[in-house]
Write a protein that binds this DNA or RNA. Structure first.
Length: 425
DNA sequence: TCTGGGGTCCTAGGACCC
DNA sequence: TCTGGGGTCCTAGGACCC
């Protein structure tokens, strides 16, 4: 048997942990730039606020109903997540951390255990030590555990549901809408509904060859799992990422090349840092930019370009490559709303060092990167960054030097005590 | 009229997840 | 005016190999 445990309204619940006055209040958590709704408390859900709604669309509702809105605080959510996972591990060592707010727990080693009671204990322990309410679903496959979890959330006062007999499987499948099944998304839901498939149970009545033909082997796997035959294995240890990306929507569109270039350089440096964190090097760098896709008045432009690099995790190399790629796709006179950098073709750094294409720069850059990482990790933010990333957020004033009449830019004096001469415009 | 057979690798696009 | 960010896997088709 597997359990799927997840935090209810996770981000919203995290905010509540640090401000108990928010209990029973309608609260929402907003995305980057406060653009859309990414988490809601039950009270906010009851007001009809949907996941992914643009914030401006429900501005009036938020004001009228006194909904409290929070900008994201991923450092906080990540920390809460780790603590929650540690408690899960007290119940079984065999856990798969599936996302920031959920994990699969493998109980197949526990033959005589009272699962229902285990679920109740787990829920209480997390509530007591972390302050986050969780739901627990048990099933003979991961997909059924997911379904049990939904049922627990919807119907069970104690937050625990157990699907452990053929009879319960049938009952659970018949009460589960097809789009609530793990692995069935929007497109497949629309497709399946054309064939009168409304519930998970209906889906299991479809012939294998039909599913295989229209939904690939994944669809077939889902069917097996729904029937109680586990075929999606546990992943106890996270695999290193195969691609890493950093991308942002800009609060205000950027049009100048320098502005966009600074953003792209920052993203490249961020990718480089993430690469070093997991001990990988990249062989490919992709840069993409796009204008506002919601803007009906101006033509939409979106483009990307991929460059090969020499297996690196150096911010210097990756910034250089990213800027080169940007030059190829950048068009003057447009207003860019989003940009990003992706690194792929990743291999482990140790593997790289065994290979033939070693160069001098790698060792040199490596020391520098280690130093920068150490400084930034200690400070908890980017106190050291590259000039290419731009310094404008720190810029305090631009003045003429009284003696030389050269231009001087004063930066955040308290933290940096520094100024630079602008040698060009 | 008839134009081989068998394989691998890469990429783009489309589906999915949180 | 204002619309998130970060991933994975599968498949078909093309390029290329002998």
């Amino acid at each position: 048997m597997f359990a799927l445990v997840d935090g209810n309204n996770f981000y919203a619940s995290c905010e509540r942990v640090f401000n108990p006055a928010l209990r029973d209040k309608a609260i929402v958590v907003l995305s980057n730039n406060d653009g859309i709704i990414i988490a809601r408390s039950n009270e906010a859900k009851a007001l009809g606020i949907k996941m992914g709604t643009p914030t401006f669309e429900i501005k009036d509702l938020i004001a009228a109903k006194k909904v409290l809105a929070f900008s994201t605080n991923f450092a906080l959510y990540g920390d809460m997540s780790q603590r929650m996972m540690r408690i899960f591990r007290d119940f079984t060592p065999d856990i798969e951390v599936y996302s920031i707010d959920e994990a699969f727990l493998d109980f197949s080693g526990f033959k005589q255990i009272d699962l229902k009671q285990t679920g109740i204990d787990l829920r209480q322990k997390v509530l007591k030590y972390i302050g986050i309410p969780v739901s627990v679903g048990f099933g003979p496959s991961k997909t059924l555990a997911k379904i049990a979890n939904k049922i627990a959330k919807k119907y069970m006062k104690n937050g625990v549901a157990l699907i452990d007999t053929p009879k319960k499987i049938e009952k659970a499948l018949k009460m589960t809408p097809i789009d609530d099944v793990w692995g069935i998304g929007r497109q497949y839901t629309r497709f399946l509904q054309k064939y009168q498939v409304q519930t998970a149970w209906d889906f299991t009545r479809l012939p294998d060859h039909f599913i295989r033909k229209n939904m690939s082997v994944n669809g077939l796997r889902t069917k097996q799992e729904l029937l109680g035959i586990a075929c999606i294995p546990m992943a106890y240890h996270p695999e290193p990422r195969k691609a890493i990306r950093t991308a942002r929507t800009f609060a205000k569109s950027k049009s100048g090349y320098d502005e966009v270039s600074e953003a792209v350089s920052t993203f490249a440096a961020s990718c480089a840092r993430k690469l070093r964190e997991q001990g990988s090097v990249a062989n490919l760098v992709t840069v993409f930019i796009r204008t506002n896709k919601f803007d009906k008045k101006n033509p939409y432009y979106a483009n990307s370009f991929t460059l090969q690099v020499n297996a690196t995790s150096s911010s210097i190399d990756l910034i250089k490559a990213a800027k080169k790629a940007l030059q190829i796709i950048f068009k003057e006179g447009l207003f860019y709303k989003k940009a990003g950098v992706m690194v792929s073709g990743l291999i482990s750094e140790t593997h790289r060092q065994l290979s033939l294409f070693d160069d001098q720069n790698f060792a040199k850059h490596k020391q520098l990167m280690q130093t920068i990482d150490r400084l930034n990790n200690r400070a908890g933010l980017s106190v050291v960054k590259f000039a290419a990333e731009g310094a404008f957020p720190l810029l305090q004033a631009v003045k003429k030097h009284p003696a030389s009449s050269k231009t001087i830019c004063w930066y955040n004096a308290k933290q940096y005590q520094s100024y630079i001469y602008m040698t060009k415009k």
